[in-house]
Write a protein that binds this DNA or RNA. Structure first.
Lengths: 255, 255
DNA sequence: CGCAATATTGACCACTCTCAATGAGGGTGG
DNA sequence: CCACCCTCATTGAGAGTGGTCAATATTGCG
């Protein structure tokens, strides 16, 4: 691999003018020209509102999406009006990777609150990747990370109790908010109880009861969508012996 | 992208001397030289036996693995001796993609029966990818497919009853065997009931009871590890309204 | 202000887990 | 070759987690 003049890691954040680029560049070294080329293909999205759809099941893959602000859920709708929530996506996270396999989206994506979304034309990104090996590598890494995360979720749904699932979910949000410089203990849930339960394989009522119980136990305080985590260690303890695995899967990272 | 002389799809199977190459080449067009270069980096593995480990949690990523014959399970061990089975891998399937994210394996892989396994040094594969765009694309597709499959499993574990899970599991095996030219209705389970239950988030006893019930209902005949599916349509009906989604996720494809 | 959607809480019940015992194979060594 | 053991599979009985159904807040929005 040829030696290239690279931007030091701590300057990339500055060089990248938006979080789409940060997501793609952060762990790699890119030349200023490369960053510029990448910057050129990213489309800054207009603001979107609760319920707006990024893509539907079966749509051809045109863009990958990066959440700039706000939040997005991906889900797979079923014929009877039900759905399976596949994930919640916070600022900096990349959406649409599941569509690369055959060029069509296999799930749908909806904005949960007023959000800013960036679009990255996948064909141009891939073409750029052929010319920038480290970008290509980073793309593979992002896909691989998604696989690792999914494995953690499989563990959660396959082996964990309702209590453990909700604790893991809250800790996951906490970690991701912290990574983005937001409060890891005080945030608003942009998704409904129903969506949380759907995501975690639980009934709405169970989620609601658990919130109440967690509050009674002093683990957190919750009022509708506003959550304040009071005892992160206590929540971690609920995860049990699989906690290290969930941690590395990005589902419950400790500070 | 420069125009290249490519091998027609129906000849690739011939050009590819083993199934590792088939997995990587099948959907793409490669020049004879490219196939040859790819062929050169693949290491044909010696036969392995039940219990042999391909890699353990935390091992650095050196090779991706392709099952040539036999079967492999990937799982994440927990500190207390338990484990979560993440997947079963049949001939032609690629293993180790979860390690690309940071160069370390996040799960372990064990051979379930006497198997032949090919190894592909990942760094050389990736380097080859920088020179063969269509190979790079195929790599991305394989990762993406894995993500799609995991989504299907999340749906299965999050929303489905024990009955639906086992039906989906059996149909998944059926489909994959058929794709490899083996009988889709008559095969041997290389994994134990315990491993099946672990994978599906069920207790061993539940799996056993379901096998018995399916047999009583005429859906299949089972004797220890030998399974004969008698009513594929009946099994499909058990999946319910999410069946189309599971199908595209490669979890239960209809013939 | 009032309707609709969302959340909470309670009572009941069912699916599946756990515990326990039995049975069937498969391998090893006498 | 058989006896033994150990693992795996099957089957039954009881218990518990979490789902379902239903009623009642609470909130948001037109």
């Amino acid at each position: 691999m040829p030696e290239r003049k690279v931007i030091p890691l701590d300057q990339i954040k500055v060089a990248c003018k938006n979080c789409s680029l940060a997501t793609l560049c952060l762990p790699i070294g890119l030349t200023p020209e490369d960053v510029d080329r990448l910057d050129q293909i990213v489309k800054r999205g207009r603001p979107m509102h609760r319920g707006d759809q990024l893509f539907a099941t079966g749509d051809p893959l045109h863009n990958l999406f990066v959440v700039k602000t706000g939040s997005v859920k991906t889900y797979c709708p079923s014929t009877d009006g039900g759905e399976q929530v596949l994930g919640f996506h916070l600022p900096g996270e990349l959406i649409g990777l599941e569509a690369i396999q055959d060029g069509f989206h296999h799930c749908a994506a909806k904005v949960l609150e007023t959000s800013a979304i960036c679009e990255i034309p996948f064909d141009r990104l891939e073409e750029l990747g052929t010319r920038i090996p480290s970008l290509q590598h980073q793309l593979l890494r992002l896909l691989s990370k998604e696989i690792g995360h999914d494995s953690g979720m499989l563990l959660l749904l396959g082996k964990k109790s309702a209590e453990e699932r909700l604790a893991a979910f809250l800790l996951s949000l906490s970690t991701r908010y912290r990574q983005r410089g937001l409060s890891p203990t005080d945030f608003f849930l942009s998704m409904s109880r129903h969506e949380i339960g759907n995501y975690l394989g639980l009934a709405v009522e169970t989620v609601s009861r658990l919130f109440t119980r967690f509050q009674e136990e002093g683990l957190l305080e919750v009022s509708r969508k506003h959550v304040q985590l009071r005892d992160l260690d206590g929540l971690h303890e609920l995860l049990g012996e699989h906690e290290p695995y969930l941690r590395q899967a990005g589902i419950a990272m400790r500070s």
